[in-house]
Write a protein that binds this DNA or RNA. Structure first.
Lengths: 188, 188
DNA sequence: CCAATTTCTTAATATACCTTATTTTTTTCT
DNA sequence: AGAAAAAAATAAGGTATATTAAGAAATTGG
């Protein structure tokens, strides 16, 4: 629990009683490598804080093509935010890329949390701001840079990811095929 | 002011005194078509609520290529969020596509607002959630759909935008050239 | 209202990236 | 450890999209 308490304390103040309340509404879950915490079409009822490991959220389109929406690292939150907030069937799959441990919080408990401990609005506001900015910066890069530069910036920004996921998964994050990523990597 | 008060009231409760406080920290600004409220490299000190008109945020890369990051419609907020929050030089330009009127709120006043009226954390949390989800859905589409389908979904989702901005601007939002958009539109 | 500018279209050529297929390398499983 | 499976690399041929150029249409500004 230390990791998540430290994370929260970075953004809001949080006393003993509140910690106890919070602790009560989350539960730990171990996820074996390659197993799923969410599949397309299922209800997305939780948001997950990653204690350890790496997760990946990806979409499979009607032709079977995979697109990686995000990688989730230790100390990050992950979910299918759109489906979670609107209580709609999941758009993406979320799978463990390595053995992982997460803390899960249900939509129901999150909503209660906002009314019980209102400063969690501030905490999640800050998280959402950061998530939005990350997506926006990614969009700018996707629109304005060729694949090779996107790859170079990716390995610079997320060196820990490179070491733990396949090139196929990175290619699908960058929006290119594994073959083309291989070609890019060939030309040094 | 009615528009913004209605918008806020959709998400939080908001009494007379709070309205008065809020009214005091925002100011209206008219923006002529084609003029800018933000340019790349400048400090981004405000977040803008759009009362009327249409704005566009776009990035110009080192080769001079334009990429549209977002269109802003009436009743939406717009800014260069990353630069605004981190007080860094702006990454994007924001320009009026039509004559527009906005309400501007400074970072300084926004920070004060959070401490004076804490439920604004909830309000902006919800805005940020929605913005994040929008970006994420756009990213999914950009990664998984060919240009023609992205165009079709765009006109379906934002019919008001189509009528008010140039095809060149839409092409730069979709991540394609105007010539190719023209070709796509040719094949019905 | 006309000249100037910008937008939109069309078309030819070029290229970034994809598809398919095969081989090599690495990882997984018993 | 060895077999099977998955990942990665390589290569040929193909396609979606870009570039360049030029003309037509629309918009802007004096």
């Amino acid at each position: 629990m230390t990791l998540i308490f430290n994370n929260i304390s970075k953004h809001i103040s949080f006393n003993k009683k509140e910690k106890a309340y919070f602790k009560n509404i989350i539960s730990e879950e171990k996820i074996d490598k390659n197993s799923f915490i969410l599949k397309q079409g299922e209800p997305c009822q939780h948001i997950y804080f990653i204690n350890s490991g790496i997760l990946r959220a990806y979409y499979i389109n009607t032709e079977g093509k995979e697109s990686t929406i995000m990688f989730g690292l230790k100390d990050w939150w992950i979910t299918d935010m759109y489906s979670f907030l609107n209580e709609l069937p999941a758009i993406v799959n979320i799978q463990a890329v390595q053995n992982s441990s997460v803390l899960k919080l249900s939509k129901e408990n999150l909503d209660k949390l906002y009314s019980e401990i209102p400063q969690f609005n501030q905490y999640f506001r800050i998280l959402m701001q950061n998530a939005y900015c990350r997506e926006q910066l990614r969009m700018i890069q996707n629109l304005s840079l060729p694949a090779k530069e996107r790859y170079e910036r990716f390995i610079h920004k997320y060196p820990q990811i490179i070491e733990n996921v396949t090139l196929k998964q990175i290619a699908s994050y960058l929006g290119i095929t594994p073959e083309f990523l291989s070609a890019i990597r060939g030309t040094k």
